[in-house]
Design a binder for these strands. Structure first.
Length: 649
RNA sequence: GCCGGCAUAGCUCAGUGGUAGAGCAGCUGAUUCGUAAUCAGCAGGUCUGCGGUUCAAGUCCGCAUGCCGGCUCCA
């Protein structure tokens, strides 16, 4: 209950109710009365009725208050936000005529955007970092001032902070009347807070990179310079974080792709065009085989369609209207314009439309590993993750409205099973609903969105709703997989489409012997084989599980006396379907093991004089575990069992 | 596409205007060895490309290409 100025208020602290006269006493003063001096010094924030606040927050009404020490994620966010202010202060002190953009805390650190006449250099970064250290040494108090919006405008106008003024104008338009300004020394910033009590708390930080960033993320607006940094409460955590980044670099699929000879890109072939090497190729084959088998098992039919089609097709599909900037330019063949395909759907529709369809045939489930080509802007290309030619594990389900729920559920079930088989158990799921611009009736949108939602809920999946983020032709579910650098990559997508069936006049004859429009669902489980492979490489750090490993076992001889036995072991294993090779080189055992290890081969089969006598092999796992000598048949059984178990999940 | 950075041997990287280097990989030879690197020798480069400055350019400048980190966009 809000109370008036001179009333007595009740403050709950540590479960104890304490009465105070309200005189706008800051929380810190209250805490001084109830905490020991040493403890009080460590308090960086308070939580008032569950909300994080500055320790200077005046206590004006009944509340529950907690003293917050550095530690949990919430406080880390505040620390980083304060760090971004300190960085901005350092930058303002070092450079004249510089304008502030925004400077929030982000997942692993913070950034601040600046508008400055010349680009920052890495040397500038060092200078900024050392100035920040000075500011930290000053232990300047960080203060909050609440004021009328108009007053804030005057303050920032005087400083020429035009971006801050723009933000204030927006707040003004939203009807906001009061804002807060945080300051330390000469530096002020428009900010909601909360912040740490003084600059001295920033003990462990590092500026990591420079980047350009459009003001408000809008490419028609000026480009500002963004400085990224990170901060922790102690030096040890900072060091751990930097080590983690180093470790993550070692998992980078681009590096592993070259080291393990999986794939390559070539300047002379073109950016964003992937060459799958033999070892990548075998993995792709295994992925595709599993994918096809699983689809047949779930009553899908498989299609093959061309990579190119007459321009008219893309006119009908609408791609020339809404996707043209991603399509390669047309080529003339016999005076007819053709264009490379960016999507597979029109071809599947053509197959559907090749006959009159009955309601009895629905649902129809079709899939294709369809290679598509999309023009992606140069700056967006990234290894296997973002390319210009890729193969989607595409599929389209045509069904009646009354079948939609069941079909969505089936698709989701299939998707999650496939992801589990590949070892992905953690992902982010988004349900995107109707955007401002859309086609289709409201009723259909609602039915379809409900079907998606119900399927998610039936599987008891946690998901986030992305309001208005659906494609114009229908709602969708996106599943994102997180990679080792904490970037999330969209792989799976399930999209309902109200647009294409209309455009291509897709129909079925219903029980009433009249034509009806079926619902069309697009779906991709892995997304693209290229991106999925990239995510897979990083997920396993190149050490693929046995069923996917390009080479599953390598027979390693101790001396050339064992060559004959080694060769017969390889023959037996290959006959049994185990991907095997032999290392018969005249090298020391240790060296051969080391190389097999770096090659991330799951099993090394050591063969010495003893094994030849016993007709056995001594397996060693990639992780370094030594197993006792076993017969070749026993080893085959072991491999088969380990591979089979993957699918029971 | 935009902002910034980078480009030297197959790979990782030294080389700050004056004769292109190392380790690993490759090749040749020796070594026959028991669970993460045996030794020696040899070979390998239009220093991404094109232009410019200079007596002299891997090094300085400009443009192009590719890559990296972001922004934007997306499977």
């Amino acid at each position: 209950m809000a109370e008036t100025e001179t009333d007595v208020i009740t403050i709950n602290f540590n479960g104890e109710n304490i009465e105070r006269v309200t005189d706008e006493t800051p929380a810190s003063e209250f805490l001084a009365g109830v905490l020991s001096k040493s403890k009080q010094k460590k308090v960086i924030l308070v939580r008032i009725d569950g909300e994080l606040k500055d320790i200077s927050t005046p206590l004006t009404h009944d509340c529950r208050i907690e003293a917050i020490l550095p530690g949990d994620d919430d406080t880390l966010e505040v620390l980083r936000h304060t760090a971004s202010h300190i960085m901005a202060q350092a930058v303002k002190e070092l450079f004249q005529d510089i304008r502030l953009g925004i400077g929030p805390a982000i997942e692993n650190g913070f950034y601040y955007d600046f508008d400055y006449q010349r680009p920052f250099t890495p040397e500038d970064l060092e200078k900024i970092e050392s100035r920040m250290k000075e500011i930290v040494k000053r232990s300047q108090g960080i203060t909050r001032e609440n004021m009328a919006l108009e007053e804030a405008k005057k303050r920032f106008e005087k400083l020429g902070e035009r971006y801050k003024l723009e933000i204030l104008d927006e707040l003004d338009a939203q009807g906001v009347e009061k804002v807060s300004i945080y300051g330390q020394g000469e530096f002020i910033d428009l900010c909601k807070g909360p912040h740490l009590p003084h600059t001295g708390h920033l003990t462990a930080f590092k500026l990591n990179s420079l980047a350009g960033a459009y003001w408000k993320g809008d490419e028609t607006r000026p480009m500002l310079q963004r400085i990224y940094g990170t901060a922790f409460f102690d030096k040890k955590s900072l060091k751990e974080h930097l080590n983690r980044l180093e470790e993550a670099k070692k998992r980078d699929h681009r590096r592993l792709g070259r080291d393990l000879d999986l794939f390559s890109l070539h300047e002379e072939i073109g950016p964003g065009l992937i060459l799958w090497h033999p070892k990548g190729g075998i993995i792709r084959k295994i992925i595709e085989d599993f994918w096809r088998n699983e689809h047949f098992r779930r009553d899908y039919d498989i299609l093959f369609t061309p990579h190119i089609a007459r321009r008219d097709l893309w006119k009908t599909s609408g791609h020339l209207d809404f996707y043209t900037e991603n399509m390669y330019l047309p080529m003339e063949i016999d005076q007819v314009s053709y264009q490379l395909r960016p999507m597979n759907c029109p071809f599947h529709i053509a197959i559907y439309n090749s006959q009159i369809r009955s309601y009895r045939e629905l649902p129809m489930r079709w899939c294709e590993l369809g290679t598509v080509y999309r023009y992606e802007r140069t700056g967006t290309l990234h290894g296997l993750m973002r390319v210009r030619g890729f193969t989607q594990d595409d599929g389209h389900v045509f069904c009646r409205l009354d079948q939609l729920n069941e079909e969505i559920h089936e698709i989701l079930d299939l998707t999650l099973y496939v992801l589990r088989v590949f070892g992905f158990k953690r992902y982010e799921i988004y349900l995107s609903t109707r955007p401002d611009k859309y086609v289709g009736s409201n009723e259909n949108w609602e039915r379809a969105t409900d079907a998606l939602r119900q399927a998610l809920e039936k599987e008891e999946l946690t998901y986030e709703v992305d309001p208005g983020e659906g494609v114009f032709y229908g709602p969708k579910i996106d599943i994102k997989i997180k990679d080792c650098l904490d970037r999330s990559w969209q792989c799976s997508t399930i999209q309902v489409d109200f647009n294409l069936p209309e455009r291509f006049d897709v129909r079925y004859i219903g029980e009433d012997s009249r034509p009806h429009t079926p619902i069309m669902v697009h779906r991709a489980l892995l997304g693209s084989l290229e991106r999925f492979f990239g995510v897979l490489i990083e997920h396993y750090a190149g050490a693929f599980p046995l069923w996917l490993a390009p080479v599953q076992a390598i027979v390693i001889t101790v001396t050339d006396r064992q060559n004959q036995w080694a060769e017969s072991v390889v023959k037996k294993l290959r006959t049994a379907g185990v991907r095997t090779k032999a290392d018969l080189r005249n090298e020391k055992l240790g060296k051969k093991i080391r190389e097999a290890q770096l090659d991330k081969i799951p099993y090394m089969l050591i063969v010495g004089d003893q094994e030849v006598i016993d007709m056995t092999v001594s397996p060693r796992t990639q992780k370094g575990q030594k197993l006792t000598a076993i017969s070749v048949n026993d080893f085959i059984a072991l491999v088969e069992k380990e591979c089979r178990e993957v699918f029971n999940c």
